[in-house]
C-alpha cells in the first residue's frame, strides 16, 4: 500500500451519538454510535459497510456536521474540528470535506442549469477567479467527471441518473476538498451505470489523491473500490481490514454472516440453515457486548478489545470476545493480546 501516505486525512475518535427518545420530558435515549474510532489516510478509500440501522449513516452525518455528536473527536489533518467550529461546520471545513448523497434526483435543484451548481460552489469558496478562469475551471470540472462542457447548459431533468451523480461529484470537487463522504452514491442508479461512478471515484483517488469514505451496504462494490473495509454493527465498528483480506477471511460473526449472505454466482454449495442459525446466535451474543448489562454474559463483563487477524500488513482486526486466534502458527500468539499499535480502545481508556 504505497499509494497513500501514512498520515490520516480524517480521523474519528471515540465518537458517540445518543438520540433522545420518548416523550418531551423523557430522559431516555438511544445510543446510535457507541464510540467509533476510524481513520482515513490521505489518498485512501475506506468503505463503511453495515445494514440499515447499524449507524453508518449517523456516523456520516456526524462527520458531515449535520448531527452534533454527543462525545468524541473529529480530526481533519490533526485539527479537532468539533473544538474549532463549535456549533456548525465552518466554510473552511466545508472546503476540506464535501459530500455526495444517495439521491441525484433530489440533490440538484431542478430550476437551475448545471452551470449554476458548479459556479455557486466555486464562488462561495472564493475559487471563481476572473470570468475567463471560471469558464476554464467549469470545463475542466465537467471533463474530470466524464461529462462534456456543453452539458453545463442542461437542466438536471435532461440528464440521466448517472450523469446527475457525476454533476453532484463535480460540485463536490469544485471546492478542491481533501475528503469526500459518499453515502450510498450508486444505490439509486441503474445497475449498468453504477460501475462507472465507482471507477470515477477511484480515478479521483488515484489522480488527485482525494480521500474518501464510501458508505454502502453493497459488499461487492466495497471490495471493488475500497482500500480498506470497516464493518459496522449496532453502532460499533466490529472489524476492519484490507478489502480483499477482509472479504476472504471475515472473522467477526456478524461479518461472516454479512459476507456469506452476499449473492455470488460463483458460489457452488448451498447454505446450511444450521450453520447460519449458529452464526446468528453468535452475532446476538456479540451484540450483547454493546447492549446487555447482564454480568452473567461473558461478553458484557468487559468491553472487547481489538485483536489482530493474520498478516499485520493487512491491518485486519476484529473486536469480539468470541474471536479465538488459531493456535497453529506461532506468529499468531501475538493476536491473543490486545493490539497496542491500534488506536486506544475506548474501554481501556
Amino acid at each position: 500500500m504505497s499509494r497513500h501516505s501514512d498520515t490520516a486525512a480524517l480521523e474519528v475518535k471515540g465518537l458517540v451519538k445518543d438520540f433522545h427518545s420518548g416523550g418531551l420530558f423523557s430522559r431516555a435515549s438511544v445510543r446510535a454510535l457507541g464510540g467509533v474510532d476510524l481513520a482515513i489516510r490521505k489518498g485512501e478509500i475506506v468503505a463503511l459497510v453495515g445494514e440499515s440501522g447499524s449507524g453508518k449513516s449517523t456516523l456520516a452525518r456526524c462527520i458531515a456536521r449535520l448531527e452534533k455528536p454527543t462525545e468524541g473527536q473529529i480530526r481533519l489533518n490533526g485539527t479537532d474540528v468539533l473544538k474549532r467550529d463549535r456549533f456548525q461546520a465552518s466554510r473552511e471545513y466545508r472546503s476540506q470535506l464535501q459530500m455526495v448523497f444517495q439521491d441525484p434526483f433530489g440533490s440538484l435543484n431542478p430550476v437551475h442549469r448545471i452551470e449554476h451548481f458548479l459556479t455557486r460552489s466555486l464562488t462561495l469558496h472564493g475559487k471563481a477567479g476572473t470570468p475567463a478562469q471560471l469558464r476554464t475551471r467549469l470545463d475542466e470540472l465537467m471533463t474530470t467527471v466524464g461529462l462534456t462542457p456543453d452539458m453545463l447548459n442542461s437542466y438536471p431533468h435532461e440528464l440521466s441518473g448517472g450523469q446527475r451523480q457525476r454533476v453532484a461529484i463535480a460540485r463536490a470537487l469544485a471546492v478542491e476538498p481533501e475528503v469526500i463522504l459518499a453515502d450510498e452514491p450508486t444505490s439509486m442508479l441503474d445497475v449498468s451505470v453504477r460501475i462507472g461512478i465507482l471507477n470515477l471515484m477511484r480515478k479521483l483517488r488515484d489522480e488527485q489523491g482525494i480521500s474518501m469514505l464510501y458508505i454502502t451496504h453493497d459488499l461487492a462494490s466495497a471490495r471493488y473500490l475500497a482500500d480498506r473495509i470497516a464493518v459496522m454493527f449496532a453502532g460499533e465498528l466490529v472489524e476492519e481490514g484490507e478489502s480483499l483480506d477482509l472479504m476472504a477471511n471475515p472473522t467477526h460473526p456478524y461479518t461472516r454472516l454479512l459476507v456469506s449472505a452476499v449473492p455470488d454466482p460463483a458460489r457452488t454449495g448451498s447454505y446450511d440453515p444450521r450453520e447460519r442459525a449458529a452464526l446468528r446466535a453468535a452475532v446476538m451474543e456479540s451484540a450483547s457486548c454493546a447492549f446487555d448489562g447482564d454480568p452473567q454474559q461473558r461478553c458484557s463483563a468487559t468491553e472487547p478489545v481489538r485483536h489482530r487477524v493474520g498478516d499485520p500488513a493487512n491491518e485486519h482486526w476484529v473486536r469480539c470476545h468470541l474471536y479465538r486466534p488459531p493456535a497453529t502458527a506461532a506468529s499468531h500468539a501475538l493476536s491473543a493480546e490486545p493490539l497496542d499499535a491500534l488506536p486506544e480502545d475506548k474501554a481501556s481508556a
Binding site: S160, V193, R194, I195, N199, V262, D264
Partner: peptide
Amino acid sequence: PYTQALMGAFPPLTGPRVPLTGLADG
C-alpha cells in the same frame, strides 16, 4: 453487450480486482 454490461456491474467476491466497465452513460 448489454448482458455483458449488466454482468460487469456486479464485481466478483473472490479473486483479484479486475477493472470493470459497465455501460457508459447514454
